[in-house]
Design a protein around this nucleic acid. Structure first.
Length: 261
DNA sequence: ATGCCTTCTAGCAGAAGA
C-alpha cells in the first residue's frame, strides 16, 4: 500500500491538483496538511467521488489536517494528546483497515516555530515533546503505524541544498533536530531516508527567490515508521513533478510503500 | 540589508508561512 503526505497550502486553492494526483497515482492513503479550511467547508464530495473516505480536522484560515483513504477509516481521533488548551488543528489519527491487518496513520502539521527565541519556538519544542510521548505510547501496541506529515524539521545538513541559509531558522535549530532524533531513537524509522541515502532529496522549495528553479530545497516532510511498519517498507518516493504544475503548493507529495495491502 | 512569493481574513494592509 502507498501512503502519501502532502502539505497542500490551502485545500481550496489546490483541489484540482489533489484530484489530478489522486487520479494519476491512486494512492491508498493521503495525509494532508495546511488545509486552511473548517470541516464544513472541506471539499469532501469531490474526493469521495474518486473512491476515498475522508476524515478532517480543520480550523479557520490556518493549519488544518486531513486523512483520505481508499480503505475503511476507524477510531478517528483529532488532536495530539498532552495539552487540552492547544486549539491548533495540527494532528489527526485514524486506523486504516487493510486486507492483511491494520495500520494506524497520523497526519501531522508540526509547528513552524519561527522566529526562534519567541513563544512560537517554545510551542514547537513542547509540541514535539508531546509527539514523542504519544509515539512512545503507540509503540506499546506493537503494531504498524506511520506518522506522516510536515514536520518542519530539517534533520541533517544534507537535507538542505544550502544548510548555511537555515542556521538561524527554527527548522534547523539544534533543539529541533535533537527532538526529531529523540523521536527516531524510540525505535522509529525515517522512511524516505531509509530508502534514499545521500544529499539532494528535498520536499519543499520556497516560493521566493526562484528556489525551485535553483533547486534550493529542503527535506521537511517525513513519514516516520514503527518497527512493525518498517519491516514492511518496500520503497519511498518524492513526487516532484507536482511542483511544476501551475500555481503549485510549495511542498510536494512524499510517499512510502508498505507490503500490507 | 532587505525583500523575494502565496495564502488567509478583513476590508483595500497585515499576519503567517518556512
Amino acid at each position: 500500500m502507498r501512503i502519501v503526505t502532502w502539505n497542500v497550502n490551502s485545500i481550496k486553492q489546490r483541489l484540482e491538483h489533489l484530484l489530478a494526483f489522486l487520479r494519476e497515482e491512486r494512492p491508498d492513503v493521503v495525509c494532508l496538511q495546511e488545509t486552511k479550511c473548517v470541516d464544513e467547508a472541506f471539499p469532501r464530495l469531490e474526493i469521495e467521488g474518486l473512491g476515498y473516505n475522508v476524515a478532517t480536522h480543520g480550523q479557520k484560515a490556518f493549519n488544518g489536517v486531513a486523512i483520505l483513504s481508499r480503505w475503511r477509516l476507524e477510531d478517528v481521533a483529532p488532536g495530539l494528546p498532552g495539552n487540552d488548551a492547544d486549539d491548533h488543528a495540527r494532528y489527526l489519527e485514524a486506523v486504516v483497515s487493510v486486507p492483511r491487518g491494520v495500520v494506524r496513520i497520523s497526519s501531522i502539521y508540526l509547528p513552524n516555530g519561527n522566529p526562534i527565541g519567541t513563544p512560537k519556538f517554545a510551542y514547537k519544542l513542547a509540541w514535539m515533546e508531546r509527539l514523542i510521548h504519544h509515539a512512545a505510547r503507540l509503540l506499546t501496541h506493537e503494531e504498524p503505524f506511520v506518522l506522516a506529515g510536515d514536520f518542519n524539521v530539517i534533520p541533517e545538513p544534507q537535507d538542505a541544498a544550502n544548510p548555511q541559509k537555515w542556521t538561524n531558522d527554527a527548522l534547523f535549530q539544534p533543539e529541533s533536530r535533537a527532538k526529531y532524533r529523540e523521536l527516531l531513537a524510540l525505535g522509529l524509522t525515517d522512511g524516505v531516508r531509509a530508502c534514499h541515502e545521500g544529499p539532494g532529496v528535498y520536499t519543499f522549495w520556497d516560493y521566493q527567490a526562484g528556489a525551485w528553479q535553483k533547486n534550493d530545497g529542503i527535506r521537511i516532510d517525513h513519514l516516520v515508521l514503527s518497527p512493525q511498519a518498517a519491516d514492511r517498507l518496500r520503497g519511498a518516493s518524492v513526487h516532484k513533478h507536482t511542483r511544476t504544475w501551475e500555481k503549485p503548493s510549495d511542498h510536494v507529495p512524499v510517499s512510502v510503500d508498505l507490503d500490507l495491502a
